[in-house]
Write a protein that binds this DNA or RNA. Structure first.
Length: 209
DNA sequence: ATTCCTTTGAAGTAA
DNA sequence: TTACTTCAAAGGAAT
């Protein structure tokens, strides 16, 4: 989808100044012309990708727009569903202090920032629908078992695609939420006491904060 | 309405 | 440093 890719490039140019261009060069799917324009703040969007083969066609990983538009990471009600500007990024940095980091578009709905997806989670997100189309399994637990076996059957180069993408998402997550830590959501999910917790009866009600 | 199941990997806690 | 635990996604099943 060209619109999403354009959003990505605009986001990169606004959020990352020339000071972090070294990091960007570590990922081969970033558009070459974008890397050249990193030191310039203004950028036009007059070229259409379909008229001729541009750098964005080959260097932008096809899963990156999928990540940026993940409904979980960027809920429809949050400001991240809109194109991210430098001002919005600074607003995110301002609200991410030493305590928990939230998506917030209003004072009434706050959704916690979740962990970035690891390589296998990205693989599942992309391949789940294919297993569903095969029609053998319907439950997610069974599908996840299948995807776990297929993950181990992948070649090293096929897996590296998702490891690289996961590293890219961790970097993006770090830039978007500088104060965020996995500690923010650790131990806050309600679980059955019969699982592991033994002894106190209401130990996990203290997370109301 | 909420948790379980089930996978791998990242990151947390406790020893 | 090592071992163990939690949570990321998904959604039908179970509670």
């Amino acid at each position: 989808d060209h619109q999403k890719i354009h959003f990505l490039t605009t986001f990169e140019s606004d959020l990352f100044p020339s000071s972090v261009s070294v990091k960007l060069q570590a990922y081969d799917w970033w558009p070459a012309e974008q890397q050249q324009n990193l030191n310039t703040t203004s950028r036009g969007q007059n070229n259409t990708p379909q008229t001729q083969s541009t750098a964005a066609d080959t260097s932008v990983h096809p899963l990156v727009p999928l990540l940026l538009y993940s409904d979980r990471h960027f809920p429809s009600s949050s400001l991240y569903s809109q194109p991210i500007s430098a001002a919005a990024a600074q607003q995110v940095s301002a609200q991410s202090g030493q305590h928990a980091c939230y998506h917030s578009n209003s004072a009434f709905s706050r959704q916690p920032v979740k962990k970035p997806l690891n390589a296998f989670m990205l693989y599942m997100k992309e391949m789940r629908h294919k297993v569903l189309q095969e029609g053998q399994e319907r439950e997610s637990a069974a599908i996840n078992r299948i995807l776990g076996r297929r993950w181990h059957a992948l070649s090293h180069s096929e897996q590296s695609k998702y490891y690289d993408l996961a590293q890219k998402e961790r970097l993006l997550h770090m830039q978007l939420y500088p104060g965020w830590s996995a500690r923010d959501n650790y131990g806050k999910r309600k679980r059955k006491q019969s699982q592991q917790i033994s002894g106190s009866t209401s130990s996990w009600t203290l997370n109301a904060g």
